[in-house]
């Protein structure tokens, strides 16, 4: 396998396996961790960012560190989620436990940084630990709309949505938070379906915890990274084969250039990033050896999909803080 001529550590995607390909010079893999060097090498490029999702590149970093951030975001950054449900009445067909489970999975808008972890599970409700909600709803016949057989028209409150959950402030919470700061993030999550006569009267208590405890406390839908793909055409591909080659990659990765009556494939600069590593070239015997697909091992394309309680960048920052805290506590452990 030919080496791509630069100093980046790579993996090469061959037909049946992933092969490591290190340059002759030193890489992040060989280096002794040193903050100064690390600071100099580390590069963060934010590619895409909105209130729920974010894509950024983390360049020049050892995979263990990148993975640590990913792991921390998944399971150590805390959020608030409904943890206890007091069922005063539930005559709907959905079982109490299942209902409680469903309620738990509803993302809650509340800044977890303003709360503390619950000290003891059976203890009293405290304003700095717990958010209280109420879900009180009853399904009735709706006589206003006639001539309809849709459940939504025939009955009032036939669908229980997350918007029906109402926040009940405890203690000073009323002054501390605005009404818009607390509540379910999405108003239209279907919790249950009811029919006339069904009723729910629930008290919900949200507390702070992390994804290790239960997936509902995880602040992200998912957080992951991938390595930057790089594609290099090593043999010129012409004519019909060029179009075939183009189809083997994600759209935009390869374009076909015309020069005179010759058509040949070229890799679009900076667009290989969006290749999905599908490796479909290996389907064609004649194209197999014309491309080398590689990935840069110290270039991580991170994607953070927040569930909404925290903005994605805050999640990442929280993860860094947690790592910091963990290091500190390890150091103090070691020193004591």
């Amino acid at each position: 396998m030919e080496i791509m001529n630069d100093e980046k550590p790579r993996i090469i995607l061959t037909e049946h396996k992933v092969v490591n390909n290190f340059p002759t010079g030193p890489t992040v893999f060989d280096e002794h961790f040193e903050v100064k060097k690390f600071k100099k090498k580390l590069q963060i490029v934010i590619v895409r960012h909105d209130h729920l999702e974010m894509e950024f590149d983390l360049i020049g970093i050892h995979p263990f560190l990148a993975n640590t951030f990913r792991r921390l975001m998944l399971s150590d950054v805390p959020t608030m989620a409904i943890d206890q449900v007091h069922i005063l009445n539930n005559t709907s067909i959905i079982q109490d436990e299942v209902l409680a489970h469903r309620l738990g999975l509803i993302p809650i808008r509340a800044d977890p940084r303003l709360f503390e972890n619950k000290a003891d599970a059976g203890g009293p409700v405290q304003e700095k630990e717990t958010l209280e909600f109420e879900l009180k709803i009853k399904c009735n016949k709706d006589s206003s709309k006639k001539d309809s057989s849709r459940a939504e028209d025939m009955y009032k409150n036939s669908n229980v949505y997350s918007k029906h959950i109402k926040w009940v402030p405890i203690g000073n919470q009323k002054s501390k938070f605005k009404e818009s700061d607390v509540g379910p993030i999405h108003p239209d999550i279907l919790i249950a379906k009811m029919r006339p006569g069904h009723e729910m009267d629930l008290k919900l208590f949200a507390s702070k915890s992390n994804g290790k405890d239960h997936a509902k406390f995880s602040p992200v839908a998912t957080a992951f990274y991938r390595l930057l793909p790089e594609i290099k055409i090593v043999k010129q591909v012409e004519g019909e084969a060029a179009y075939r080659l183009q189809k083997c990659f994600s759209p935009g990765v390869i374009s076909v250039r015309t020069e005179g009556d010759k058509k040949y494939a070229v890799v679009n600069k900076n667009h290989a990033r969006y290749d999905t590593s599908s490796r479909n070239v290996f389907r064609y015997e004649d194209l197999k050896d014309t491309v080398v697909m590689s990935k840069v091992q110290d270039h991580f394309i991170f994607t953070i999909e927040s569930v909404g309680a925290l903005p994605p960048e805050a999640i990442f920052k929280e993860a860094i803080n947690i790592l910091k805290d963990k290091c500190f506590s390890l150091l103090t452990e070691l020193n004591s």
Binding site: K17, A66, N67, R71, R226, L227, S277
Partner: peptide
């Protein structure tokens, strides 16, 4: 077959 990354080491797995 897809490229997978190990959740423990963070590096890509050798096999697809």
């Amino acid at each position: 077959k897809d490229v997978f990354y190990s959740g423990i080491t963070g590096e890509p797995l050798e096999a697809y």
